[in-house]
Amino acid sequence: MLAYIIRRVGQSALVLLIVGLVAFSMFRFVGDPIDNMLGQERTVEDIERLRAQLGLDQPFVVQYYKFLEGAVQGNFGVSYRQGRPVAEILLERAPATLELAMVSGVLAILFGIALGVFTAIRRDGVFANVIMSASLIGVSLPTFLIGILLIYLFSVELGWLPSFGRGETVDLGGWSTGFLTESGLKALILPSITLGLYQMTLIMRLVRSEMLEVLRQDYIRFARARGLRDRAVNFRHALKNTMVPVITVIGLQLGAIIAFAIITETVFQWPGVGLLFINAIQFVDIPVMAAYLMLISVMFVGINLLVDILYFFIDPRLRADRSGGH
């Protein structure tokens, strides 16, 4: 087991190195950093000084190493647009995105699994078919349209919920949370539904198809042939086997939620890192783009690693070297 985890950590580190290389190349080759940092009025000395200061006169590998070293310490340079350290901006914005992603993720997982199991078991039921058809609309409905629709209904027409922003936030030692105020919670409702709905649909459809696949397996037939109750067959036998492949995708979906937050944050003007990123793209603010890329990669890779480790607790076949042998 330890060997397996070490190997997975190694692979994760490799992915991060590659992403780091991409991020660094963006820094180095997309637009001239010197151009971006110095205005129109610059002297040759200025350029040379900055070049040396940024280490741009050193070999590529050394620069890459320096970049990684900086990245590990949270140093991603200075935003071209805001003129402040990128890390500082990101930290300020992270709580908004993380809170939104967390609520959406929980919604998506809970409802996704429940509805997926339901539609698989009641495969030919009317209600299950209605859910399935609705889910196809859900998949085809771009996230931003869902957001606009919700804003139109609940903000413009009914006036119940705010259409933008986080509401009031409370500062908890550097972490600004919207969980503790009424306006903060209210502001969270529409964005988290918008963000969670699409992921929920995906999880539901996946759970359904995996579950149907599992229900076709011999061991399910055998369980039925032994006269086990439907509940035991569906939940004890089928659902557990369904979860093995589903967990990977749920892991990926959690990552996707953070990425898709870009869209939701734009629709709701939610002051998170996603909105920051989209503005960075619009203004070609490379340091912010690169830092966002690194940050989100660390999250994805971390989630994937967690998922792989989680497998051990579900699938005994992977635990072979621990419990096997007698």
């Binding site: 061991y219 037939r221 042939a225 557990k240 086997n241 076949r317």
Partner: peptide, 14 residues
Amino acid sequence: MVFQDPLTSLNPLL
């Protein structure tokens, strides 16, 4: 009932 393939007729997770 006894099925053909013992490799697939037992639930691998239980």
